[in-house]
């Protein structure tokens, strides 16, 4: 996935889409927005839409004592809710803080003390969440699998593409195959100097960020004073 900081307008649609897609309980959010407002000589307002990076060398997989967290052949890191014991080692070990332990208090309903909405009731059937286990963004693996089964292409066909990517009004999120040099994601990373968050951890995240100046946003803009944030170093 590639996240374009040039146009993301901090609208929270991606966050809401994921909550709808996965019937997330009130205390749970898989994607998050990190807002940056720097004060160098020129302030820069940036919003990083972050979620599990699906690291290719994932510490969470390494530390999981049960094997509940594993990497699928396509690279997506998934958690098997039936195997997770809730030890939270992965929560602590994910250097990007992208995992959340679903404790009882996070498993809040929409309107605590009031009715369960029809939508919540449906969610309990369609997408049950297990209290006491750990969760995170799974790149909408269910959606991708269902799409692939229909012969669709992730990142191109909507039905095989993550919900947050589909909904983004800024088209700031691009999904696709990093191994395919001709894919849109590969092109963006190449041409617009995509960078990963904290490459020095050696985790090889599958999410890249790009930035630029509006007006030449298809070319890398060297004079943009955007924060080269989360990059190796200090």
């Amino acid at each position: 996935m590639v996240v374009d900081l040039t146009v993301c307008s901090r609208c929270y649609a991606c966050v809401a889409a994921c909550r709808v897609e996965h019937f997330l309980p009130m205390g749970m959010s898989w994607p998050k927005l990190v807002a940056l407002e720097t004060n160098d000589d020129h302030p820069i307002v940036s919003t990083y839409s972050v979620r599990c990076n699906q690291c290719q060398d994932a510490p969470c997989v390494e530390v999981c004592p049960t094997g509940a967290t594993r990497q699928r052949p396509d690279g997506i890191i998934v958690i098997d809710q039936d195997k997770c014991v809730g030890c939270r080692y992965c929560v602590v070990a994910c250097p990007y803080q992208n995992r959340t332990f679903l404790s009882k208090d996070k498993d809040r309903g929409f309107f605590p003390g009031k009715i369960h909405t029809d939508f919540e009731k449906a969610g309990k059937e369609l997408y049950p969440h297990q209290v006491g286990t750990t969760e995170k963004c799974n790149f909408c693996a269910e959606r991708i699998d269902a799409g692939l089964a229909k012969g669709l292409k992730p990142g191109i066909d909507r039905e095989a593409t993550p919900a947050c990517v589909n909904t983004c009004p800024a088209r700031a999120l691009t999904f696709g195959d990093l191994d395919d040099p001709d894919s849109e994601v590969s092109r963006l990373i190449r041409e617009r100097k995509g960078f990963q968050l904290h490459p020095e951890y050696g985790t090889d995240p599958s999410i890249y960020f790009i930035d630029g100046k509006i007006g030449c946003s298809d070319k890398p803009a060297d004079d943009i004073k955007a924060e080269k944030a989360g990059v190796a170093g200090k």
Partner: peptide
């Protein structure tokens, strides 16, 4: 007591190859 799903406790010993927690247990 700390575990979210204590009854699955036994699963924790299955990954000593990579997890220090498995090893520890």
């Amino acid at each position: 007591i700390y575990l979210g799903r204590p009854l699955r406790f036994w699963r924790m010993v299955t990954r000593p190859g990579s997890s220090w927690l498995s090893r520890g247990i």
